[in-house]
């Protein structure tokens, strides 16, 4: 039973890879097996990812930038830190400029949405996705897949630090994010330095650090398996 989710992911990967006109990076992604739920967290590589978007609705809003880093052996590899501006081909509103501090000009010089997806496939290959409040990243990735390749539900293993925290506190996970569960509030609980939010790469690193702290606070951190955090 416990492997059912893994096998579901596997078969879906195989099924999707038969689709036509997929970019090479996606085919590569689909051909590489994903971490399985019995793997130990310490042996899994995670891609901590953060999107900055024009709003919360994947159908109407767009990704303006994304940032990431990689965790291996429960350490953040700062050599893997990265950040890209994405050109959403739509005007920014003044409100979201002030949140993300990215100007129209910068956005115009960014990469296209399909380039973004190819980058993400490359980075995510064989890794688990690590986000804080997966509603955004998962939602946008799936919407873009629908728009670009005609399928929903990209097979991926997602770990959400917000869910991890809910599990730890025995709270029911809700699909909104209370203030006490925001990244900075949780970071503070683990004595992590305050960070000025809303830069995609810094947020991705901040999420990665939070995850390391959460794992460190579990019993026998090096024995924790993936299924214990998803």
């Amino acid at each position: 039973m416990i492997f059912s989710k893994d096998s579901r992911l596997n078969s879906r990967q195989k099924k999707l890879s038969k689709l036509k006109n997929l970019p090479g990076s996606l085919i590569n992604y689909l051909s590489e097996s994903l971490p399985s739920s019995s793997d130990r967290v310490k042996d899994i590589e995670f891609l901590a990812l953060d999107f900055e978007t024009t709003g919360l609705n994947p159908k109407t809003d767009r990704v303006v930038s994304f940032g990431y880093t990689v965790i291996d052996q429960l350490a953040i590899l700062n050599s893997m830190n990265g950040h890209y501006i994405v050109n959403p081909k739509t005007e920014l509103t003044e409100q979201n400029v002030s949140i993300h501090e990215i100007t129209d000009d910068e956005v115009k010089s960014g990469i296209t949405v399909s380039q973004m997806m190819e980058k993400i496939f490359e980075l995510l290959k064989g890794r688990a996705l690590l986000v804080h409040f997966d509603y955004i990243e998962k939602g946008f990735i799936n919407q873009v897949c629908q728009n670009l390749y005609g399928f929903k539900d990209l097979p991926m293993v997602v770990v959400d630090t917000l869910k991890v925290e809910c599990m730890k506190q025995n709270k029911k996970f809700v699909h909104t994010q209370p203030d006490s569960m925001r990244l900075n509030a949780l970071r503070d609980r683990y004595n992590l330095p305050l960070h000025g939010a809303h830069h995609a790469m810094l947020d991705a690193i901040a999420t990665a650090e939070l995850f390391l702290a959460q794992i460190s606070y579990m019993k026998n951190p090096s024995e924790i398996t993936l299924k214990q955090v998803i």
Partner: peptide
């Protein structure tokens, strides 16, 4: 130096 560094965390 930033690039070659890794970040880790240990609880108290």
């Amino acid at each position: 130096v930033v690039k070659i560094s890794q970040t880790a965390y240990r609880k108290r």
